[in-house]
């Protein structure tokens, strides 16, 4: 059993256009690819290179570039290497195709990304909410959603003012700077 990514994989992948392969080490390969070609790539990797295990799908919100990055982590039990395939899709409308027909674990990750980021996956078996069934706000993992501001708006906080602290404060000591002020100073 080879412990490295097989060289013929490279030749195989050259069939796809617009692909950039970077080898991080003997077990990690990073592939950047156009969004349209990803299903072809996954089909090749699964069907001909033995990458049968979809370890994770991650969504990264690049708000400044108004793009979502989708990262597919694929593991091959035979060549014992991990391929991470990166694609970029437009943030608006944020629609992509599901890879459920190739990898069944995709159903969970796509559902998760849908409720956390609002990316819709066409062809995914279930796009209903799973974790946030009782959440009416925007998809919370998007960068524009400020969780701290939402919390401060929604909840009150208990004031912690024990007598000993009051005494110290009167003498000029204690917490001179509130945590809010301290945070604002940071750039």
């Amino acid at each position: 059993m080879s412990k490295t990514v097989t060289p013929w994989l490279d030749n195989l992948l050259q069939e796809i256009e617009g692909i950039e392969i970077r080898r991080k080490d003997s077990r990690r390969v990073r592939i950047d690819i156009a969004a349209d070609s990803l299903p072809t790539l996954l089909e090749l990797l699964r069907g001909r290179a033995g990458y049968v295990h979809l370890s994770a799908i991650t969504c990264v919100d690049w708000i400044d570039e108004s793009q979502f990055e989708l990262v597919y982590q694929l593991w091959s039990y035979e060549s014992q290497s991990l391929v991470s395939a990166h694609i970029r899709i437009a943030r608006d409308p944020g629609v992509y195709v599901s890879v459920f027909d190739l990898y069944q674990p995709a159903a969970f990750f796509e559902r998760d990304i849908h409720e956390m980021f609002g990316v819709y996956f066409e062809g995914s078996p279930d796009m209903s909410k799973f974790i946030l069934t009782e959440w009416n706000g925007p998809p919370p993992m998007r960068k524009e959603f400020d969780a701290e501001a939402w919390v401060n708006e929604t909840f009150e906080r208990k004031e912690y003012q024990p007598d000993w602290l009051k005494e110290i404060t009167e003498q000029g000591g204690g917490i001179v700077k509130s945590p809010e002020e301290a945070r604002q100073k940071k750039p």
Binding site: L132, W135, G137, P140, F145, A147, E148, W150, V151, F155, E156, R157, K158
Partner: peptide, 10 residues
């Protein structure tokens, strides 16, 4: 979890 959007605080 003071800044978490998902948990009740008090």
């Amino acid at each position: 979890y003071w800044q978490s959007y998902a948990t009740a605080k008090q």
